[in-house]
Nucleic acid binder design. Structure first.
Length: 320
DNA sequence: GAAGCGTGGTA
DNA sequence: TTACCAAGCTT
């Protein structure tokens, strides 16, 4: 009953997304699911299109270098995804598992993504529990527990149909994205309005029950815009693990909670777990250690995270 | 199990 | 401006 109604709605209302054009392409499913982790559809679309144009098959992606992948990934965030994607491509080139319990052993593929790939690409009966599914089912069943993952997973397993498992998985997430939105849900056009507990209670937006978030600390640094007479800028590579791992950067002092002396030019940027306040400082001699000179025109050839693009562009403008 | 891990859009 | 959020994974 539930699944029939959901699939009918989905057949009528689904968006045409690049990874849905070619039906059942496991490479597309895997790539899109990794890109969509904690990231909006609108942000992912151009990245997905560039990746699949540059690397039409997994073999092409696996044959690239990690730096090439990081360059294409720059700006998308959570760069461990790109590192794991690259590592995972090496495995998938040999064989592409169809089962959830095999997929979950691959780098960058966790419980959600394993179930999503098994279900969407191979039509297996797997329970993909993401933020959408948690929101939709918590509202529908009026679940107000602070840890809804397991209860939602149990409900989902009972709802999953024998046929069209993959479409059902996509449909439930699509309902969450288009109708059962986090804010301003469109209950008037929801096919499940009549039987939705959250709607009946008059407060669908209060589900799921989330703990309050802590305030983010601010860290401070001084970033060095080191520019040679011919205009080239000094860059170096960050350590391969941790924050912005493997990406390029301009040198900077350690990022600590000690405030800067008030500088003229600063760049502010917010990461997942802290705000960064970078005071800019100009120099013309390189720092110790490894690094490269890059002409401003060639910056696009290097894997720069957004925070570094902001620092460099602000630094170059501020110098004029 | 809690913390670390990006970014851009929206209210 | 600040806060919150968006198809989670790893350690």
């Amino acid at each position: 009953m539930f699944s029939e109604k959901l699939l009918t709605w989905y057949d009528l209302s689904q968006r045409r997304l690049p990874w849905r054009i070619q039906k059942k392409n496991p490479y597309y499913t895997w790539l899109s699911e990794v890109m969509l982790q904690q990231t909006t559809v609108a942000t992912v679309i151009p990245y997905f299109n560039r990746f699949t144009q540059k690397w039409p098959e997994i073999q092409n992606l696996a044959a690239a270098s990690l730096d090439e992948v990081l360059i294409e990934w720059q700006g998308l965030g959570y760069y461990s995804r790109a590192r794991n994607l690259y590592k995972c491509a090496q495995h998938l080139t040999k064989s592409f598992p169809q089962e959830e319990h095999e997929l979950i052993n691959l780098p960058g593929i966790g419980p959600y993504t394993a179930a999503a790939i098994a279900s969407i690409a191979f039509n297996k009966k797997a329970a993909a529990v993401d933020g959408n599914v948690i929101r939709v089912l918590c509202r529908y069943y009026g679940l107000d527990t602070l840890n809804p993952y397991e209860p939602v997973r149990a409900k989902l397993l009972k709802l999953l149909p024998e046929a069209r498992c993959g479409d059902f998985t996509e449909a439930l997430m699509e309902l969450g994205a288009l109708i059962c939105r986090p804010k301003n849900p469109s209950c008037e056009s929801c096919p499940f309005q009549k039987t939705c507990k959250g709607y009946e209670m008059g407060k669908p937006e209060s589900f799921p029950n989330k703990p309050p978030k802590k305030k983010l600390p601010t860290r401070y640094t001084t970033a060095f815009i080191i520019q040679r007479e011919d205009g080239a800028i000094w860059l170096r590579r960050r350590p391969s693990q941790g924050l912005l791992g493997g990406m390029m950067e301009v040198p900077s002092t350690p990022w600590t909670e000690e405030k800067n002396s008030e500088e003229k030019l600063t760049v502010k940027h917010t990461f997942t777990h802290f705000h960064l306040n970078a005071a800019l400082c100009y120099a013309d001699k390189p720092m110790e250690g490894e690094g490269i000179w890059v002409q401003p025109h060639d910056l696009k050839k290097h894997a720069l995270p957004t925070v570094m693009k902001k620092i460099i562009s602000t630094g170059l403008k501020g110098r004029e």
